[in-house]
Design a protein around this nucleic acid. Sequence first.
DNA 1: GTCTATACGCGGATAGAC
DNA 2: GTCTATCCGCGTATAGAC
Lengths: 200, 200
Amino acid sequence: MRYSPDHKEKTRHKLLEVSGALSKKQGFATTGVDRLMAAAGLTSGALYSHFGSKSAFFQALIRHELERSRKLFQPQEGETGAQRMERSLADYLSLAHAHNAESGCALPALSGEIARAEPEVRRTYRCALQEMVGMLSEQGTPPAEAWAVIAQCMGALLMARAMDDDAVREEVLAASRDQLRRMLSDEPAAPTESKKKPRP
Amino acid sequence: MRYSPDHKEKTRHKLLEVSGALSKKQGFATTGVDRLMAAAGLTSGALYSHFGSKSAFFQALIRHELERSRKLFQPQEGETGAQRMERSLADYLSLAHAHNAESGCALPALSGEIARAEPEVRRTYRCALQEMVGMLSEQGTPPAEAWAVIAQCMGALLMARAMDDDAVREEVLAASRDQLRRMLSDEPAAPTESKKKPRP
DNA sequence: GTCTATACGCGGATAGAC
DNA sequence: GTCTATCCGCGTATAGAC
């Protein structure tokens, strides 16, 4: 063949990366195949060689994106559970994340489209989230709390993105950060956002 | 004229109601003008008479829908604040709401599209939410908590809708209900979902 | 105010050259 | 494996009849 053995694999990976970014920024359904492929320097034919149809491509893309999202909540070298959570919240619920959907988590960017997608895509979505909850569970956050954390993060970021004013965006994000910190430290509500304070 | 004086007003209202339901179910951008109008028994020309363009129609629709959403959180006759919150949570975070987007709240159904809409639409969205938070604030829920409640409700419902399994959907919704009850009653975390228990 | 007819572009998808 | 060319349907929007 005219192409190196792993050329297909590399191209496929690049397609998922680049089209994923474009989909998170502009939406998947509203972006044509031509544009999705052009973002990776290819033409529409490439999509049908690799995935067969646009909706099959969507499923592969969701699987790939949620794999990336899972890593956002994974602990890094030498972190305690509390440190990981504090870092995750600060990164996730930030204005930077609100303003850069293309490099951010797929949950707030694509859940709306997934909700209207075929059962196969929704199954992929559910399994990925269950894995994420399982992972958090192993690290000391009970499943019920883990679901609540994910829902809160996704909701707050999506709401912030749909607004038109950074000050209000930050108000929403700060409220969620504060709320989650209190919840995860098992402390009762406090009137203002508390400083970093590891539990005694 | 051939039509009664308030015919235009009534038609406009019907358009917003019926197209709003269809948009929440199938998405706004992905539903053509013909279909949106056909749902109200009209043809595409009607949209341009009333609103001028599809995007102008979207803004009117969002304004109308968020007015409806605000009422979901409004207290009813003879309710206390705690009763209202308990009723709101049970109704909002339910499988019925997850399965019937067309008659439900616009926030989980349309926030993704709003996030990619023109600034004018996003301004409408922000103002409506600020009013909602102001309303909750008057009823005893501080603004920061109100933002967290709305984000959590929207995130949990959207996540539930994007899944393919009712058992897991219910797990997500129950986790959020439980979390919000604990937060609103200023109680520390409990291992399982607590029963209705007004604060002492 | 609403409908029908129509203009024109972009959508997804396929065929065949290389 | 990728590109170019092409088919056909649906998208938004407008013009003119009633």
